[in-house]
């Protein structure tokens, strides 16, 4: 297994607030890694550091052994909410990355992605004419349009309702099965983490570091039967226990 992304002793400070401290883990090529943790633990900070959009206070993040200091073309980013440009049609939003990079869009690939996400007929629509789920699908197509080797997703489906969310999870799984890339994503849903990932990394409360790291060994695609199994139930509980041990209330209870 080759290591694609390597997070080494990463620390980040915003003024007086220490968001991350001594955070280290590796992500193997072709793996999906979910990052979970109590709110405010610096998950988003870590992901933005991996994307090269934010600088770090200490430590380093390596992509194929090379330090990330600015946004890299190999890395695609999916934001919280769709983050589409409201003055552009869906089609023009999807080709926005090519426009910025002054490259020709890979039309065959985009057409495939649009068909895959049922957006083919919506290319000329404006974002506000689409539902939240469709907008997020368009955002995923945009992120995949440049064929990134690494995909970073920051709570990509957090704003969607539970059913749409599961649909989106299935879609990501299918696209990944067709085209295994390296994916790191943040989520608040343990179910989503287990459904999609090869590993779940649990971060501690602020300043965030790796609290635990669970392999998720279930075969794919992970159908409802697998998701309802005893093993998944136990893993869910273990992760939950880790996260709850980091909430202020339980920390107080432990010291009392």
């Amino acid at each position: 297994m080759t290591t694609r992304l390597s997070i080494r002793d990463v620390g980040k400070r915003y003024g007086d607030v220490e968001a991350l401290k001594g955070c280290s883990f590796d992500i193997e090529a072709g793996h999906i890694v979910a990052i979970v943790g109590p709110s405010g633990c610096g998950k988003t900070t870590l992901l933005w550091g991996m994307s090269g959009l934010h600088s770090l206070t200490s430590g380093e993040i390596l992509l194929d052994g090379e330090r990330i200091t600015r946004p890299r073309p190999e890395i695609g980013l999916v934001f919280q909410e769709a983050n589409l440009l409201p003055w552009r049609t869906i089609g023009k939003n999807i080709r926005f990355p090519n426009e910025v990079k002054r490259t020709r869009p890979d039309e065959a690939w985009i057409a495939h992605l649009l068909a895959r996400t049922d957006l083919t007929e919506f290319q000329n629509r404006m974002p506000r004419e689409l539902s939240g789920g469709m907008q997020q699908r368009a955002a995923i197509v945009r992120a995949l349009a440049l064929r990134p080797e690494v995909l970073l997703m920051d709570e990509p489906f957090g704003a969607l309702d539970a059913f749409t969310r599961e649909e989106m999870n299935r879609l990501v799984e299918e696209i990944w099965l067709e085209n295994p890339t390296t994916i790191a994503f943040i989520t608040h849903s343990i179910e989503e983490a287990i459904l999609l990932s090869d590993r779940v990394v649990v971060l501690s409360a602020r300043p965030g570091r790796v609290l635990s790291d669970y392999p998720v060994p279930f075969p794919r695609p992970r159908d409802h039967e697998i998701m309802a199994s005893r093993e998944v139930f136990e893993l869910t509980n273990a992760i939950k226990a880790d996260i709850y041990s980091q909430t202020p209330a339980s920390r107080k209870a432990m010291t009392a």
Partner: peptide, 20 residues
């Protein structure tokens, strides 16, 4: 968020101005 989106694709200051 939209400026970060453009920056993630390596947009220049001028591109961020004209496109965002």
């Amino acid at each position: 968020a939209k400026i970060a989106l453009a920056r993630s694709y390596g947009a220049s200051v001028l591109q961020i101005f004209w496109k965002i």
